[in-house]
Design a protein around this nucleic acid. Sequence first.
DNA 1: CTTGACAAACTAATGATATTAGTCTATAAT
DNA 2: ATTATAGACTAATATCATTAGTTTGTCAAG
Lengths: 196, 196
Amino acid sequence: MSRRAGLDQQTVIEAAAELADRDGLAALTLAALAERLGVRTPSLYNHVAGLPGVSRDLALLGLRELSARLGRAAIGKSGDEAVLAMADAYRSFVREHPGVYAATVRSPRLIDPHDRELQAAEAQLMAIVLAVLAAYGLEEDEAVRAARGLRSVVHGFATLEAAGGFAMPVEIDASFTWLTRVFLQGLRRESGGGSG
Amino acid sequence: MSRRAGLDQQTVIEAAAELADRDGLAALTLAALAERLGVRTPSLYNHVAGLPGVSRDLALLGLRELSARLGRAAIGKSGDEAVLAMADAYRSFVREHPGVYAATVRSPRLIDPHDRELQAAEAQLMAIVLAVLAAYGLEEDEAVRAARGLRSVVHGFATLEAAGGFAMPVEIDASFTWLTRVFLQGLRRESGGGSG
DNA sequence: CTTGACAAACTAATGATATTAGTCTATAAT
DNA sequence: ATTATAGACTAATATCATTAGTTTGTCAAG
């Protein structure tokens, strides 16, 4: 199955994920990755398409893992409970895998908007969120708006947190829960009868 | 004041800002910057502390400009009107200056947590937001929570938008206004009598 | 068991980049 | 005019990504 030193794409990407999470995505280099894996830099090209390829593969890994976690978090729950659980799971993922998460947000779509696998992974993520929001009986446009809003809230909080943006160390968890609840209140109001 | 080819720190940073906004912060190199300014790369070291220095200076520039815009947007307004105007101004800044904004969020604080000027600029920004939120009569902890929440909402939406995260091109402006209003509703509810 | 094909490692080479050290010179102050 | 210096320069080094071409395990067929 594997020859020589037994290196394949998955092994390479997993090592890249660890480095990116530990040192930051910007600090991820093929040189560091190769050293970590005990090979010379050019050998990596047998498994990944250079540094951009690693970035793309990390994005795909991250989107899939995120989908899996959100799906798991929402199982057996509905309504506010499901949304809160998803929000927590999303934030946890960003905290545990800041480098991989950064790759999912970064430009790979802008570089190649026609990447099928990436598109599919994003659609999958969106589908999970919309499925949970379905409980609120929103119309289609409202649901899209709500999904964007929820993602903005959670993404915004988690990335500011990861960047060290909340200087005061007090009650960060409570701030997050509060914000998510505020969002849910607005959602309930909307489903009752939209206002502007 | 300026000798030779008339290059000073401000000129260098302004050129860096243009490049970062046009091509992305990640694509900003000293080589490109030097070419743009008509000098050799090492000459830049007379004005900035290498690439990390440029990044830091961009962050400072961005924080100050953001403060100025938010302050201007809120002048003569109060309550919801002021918050909505600030949110719009924040989002506009991210759209117009994605590279500079990215620098303000990025890790420079993590690299040097004791940078006085950066700290001061961040405090200034926070002060403006808290001043606008003062109209809601929140307690101190509530106000901090609200400021974090507002920033998360606006930052999250704006950065996802900048990253091309909203695939469907429909009514992005409306989505943003809706989300901001949802936040404000939650805020009003809180000031009436906190819930969890 | 031998052998041939191939995947996966390697070396070598190139070009871009950041950074430091040291030089040269136009300009500003004396 | 003279001189000190800021601000430009050249030269040199180190790191990195990437490509081209070579070598060598390993697997499978004979």
